[in-house]
Design a binder for these strands. Structure first.
Lengths: 158, 158
DNA sequence: GGTGAAATCTACCTAGG
DNA sequence: CCTAGGTAGATTTCACC
């Protein structure tokens, strides 16, 4: 209702779906996939980049090959629900590289953190010496990831 | 202990960190960032791609601009903890595009799902008509994402 | 670490609805 | 007038030295 002025036709949708799987596809490959000339495919991609529909391109790394063997989700409840506490906690999150993503949820001043650590002791240090040690944190509940049946599927467009 | 035979020197680490922020960086840009010749930077990148440390490149899209205005995490408990039930549920997950990621957790046969939907009714349909309607599903708890203070930061390498 | 051929991108131009 | 296809110059990659 606010900024979705950009209209996406079915070709755009197919292009975005393809680029979510292969971000380095050339304009020729895109064109072949979409039954379009390379120049048109490139032009559409450029427009979607300028629109901000495509925010950017990123390399995806294998955590295990980087020595990050423990993956977990950590739920954090703050002691108080003021904006001041939230801001202080957000600052903490930005300084911790192990926390790769953080979300706030409906219901309470609840944070969900996704964290990557070398091993279990590293995760426990993060929880006890960083999160629980922080004055605004009231309670922490962590769950370790065992398996990932589905990983970063493309966004459900179309 | 198993497949981390690949040794990464500090230059590799810096290269990976850079490619996580900008996956379309050219070898020249990489070289300039790392004080390396373009040919050396390209050679390192190619080696890391062949090693599987770099799994691939993906376009990152703006969910709001695609009409996906509701983001949520859904926790699912299965009725029984057998491998048969898990396999059946995993099949279901693969067929639902709204579920972009799924993890199994320690503790119980608990799944955590990350979902993107157009609106609240679409999320409720997913929960009630798809998840709760499935015979192996015992209980579902969903939390809607309000804000994302930290989004897909680079993996904590180095 | 450097070089050159092959491939790719991008801006400009032309044609059609 | 807007959208699709084609072409040339600049840029990038990759095998070889």
């Amino acid at each position: 209702m606010l900024e979705s002025r950009t209209t996406l036709d079915p070709t755009d949708i197919a292009l975005l779906a393809f680029l979510q799987r292969n971000g380095t596809a050339t304009s020729q490959e895109l064109g072949a996939e979409l039954n379009l000339s390379a120049s048109q495919a490139g032009r559409r991609r450029q427009r979607l980049e300028e629109n901000g529909v495509i925010q950017g391109y990123r390399a995806r790394l294998d955590p295990a090959k980087l020595g990050l063997h423990v993956q977990a989700f950590v739920q954090v409840q703050l002691a108080s629900h003021g904006t001041e506490q939230g801001a202080a906690f957000s600052r903490l999150l930005r300084t911790r590289a192990e926390v790769t993503s953080a979300w706030t949820m409906t219901g309470e001043a609840d944070y969900l953190l996704r964290v990557f650590c070398e091993d279990l002791p590293a995760l426990n240090r993060l929880i006890h010496e960083v999160l629980l040690a922080h004055p605004v944190v009231a309670r922490v509940h962590s769950q370790i990831v065992m398996d990932q049946p589905k990983a970063d599927a493309p966004l459900p467009i179309g």
